[in-house]
Nucleic acid binder design. Structure first.
Lengths: 147, 147
DNA sequence: TATTGTTATACTCTATAACTATA
DNA sequence: TATAGTTATAGAGTATAACAATA
């Protein structure tokens, strides 16, 4: 990798990005989410919504729409899905009753825990990396996500 | 990170994986693909299919279905999309005329080059990493993808 | 008869526009 | 009047089942 002499940070970032991209779109990445859907019997959209309630804090419909960058009407159907499964409830916010907060039920919290275990299961290709490489990768991704 | 003493490789892999996952599903990862769609005016499915022809080699319908892990009938509609845009053509394989190979047209190859430039553009959050961190990240992802 | 791919069809995902309730 | 969310509806995305062509 000494061949990077004279290259810009942007070039290297672009290449790293290409591989991140391929890992997800063409590699192992995709499959994990699917298997979590199958294991829980939840539709992908509903599962994604459940995951965004992970924090345990109430989240309003509008905040979900912003988080997913989708239309509010779609959030309506996603949260309908959560309610039908008994995973969350809508509660009008007392301070402004136009706003509806979505809150986890006990069942929802339990399901989330289960899902967490499945999604926490890394894809098989990650076994190729050594312990210290995995630590390094985790460190880098933390900076990328939380930064 | 010395707190990893006594922990298993699987645990650390799981955590690294969680962040990779969040980067894509909730972070910057998603947006890049969308912007490539907008820049080229191609539907996501068609763009994904175009990308899987990157190698320049003919790829059969069945191979595409396997690659995407989707139903063959959906590949039919994806490749219809490529043909409508003039990006690729179906050619019955001489040695077995049941299989149809999908091959890039000149326009397809040009478009692919353009798309490559857009997707090569890393998401802004990657600027947070230093040059050597980016090199390390690239190295790790290469191992993950190429094995 | 078995395999590759297509057609017809239906179901899921997601957005747009018009609407209701609250502010 | 402006904002948060819902309803009705329409358009993509994707699968299933029956089919056609080739082996």
């Amino acid at each position: 990798m000494a061949a990077d002499r004279g290259r810009t940070k942007e070039e290297v970032a672009g290449e790293a990005w290409q591989y991140l991209y391929r890992f997800f779109f063409e590699g192992d990445g995709q499959r994990c989410f699917r298997s979590a859907c199958e294991a829980t019997g939840l539709a992908p959209g509903v599962l994604k919504t459940l995951l965004s309630l992970r924090g345990g804090e109430p989240v309003s419909m509008g905040e979900l729409a912003e988080h997913f960058r989708c239309d509010p009407s779609y959030v309506t159907s996603l949260v309908d899905g959560l309610e039908e499964e008994g995973l969350a409830e809508r509660k009008p916010r007392p301070s402004d009753r136009r706003v509806k907060d979505v809150v986890l039920t006990d069942v929802g919290a339990k399901t989330l825990e289960h899902v967490g275990k499945i999604l926490g299961e890394p894809p098989p290709s990650m076994a190729k990396l050594s312990f210290s490489e995995l630590r390094k990768l985790r460190e880098l991704m933390v900076r990328l996500v939380d930064g």
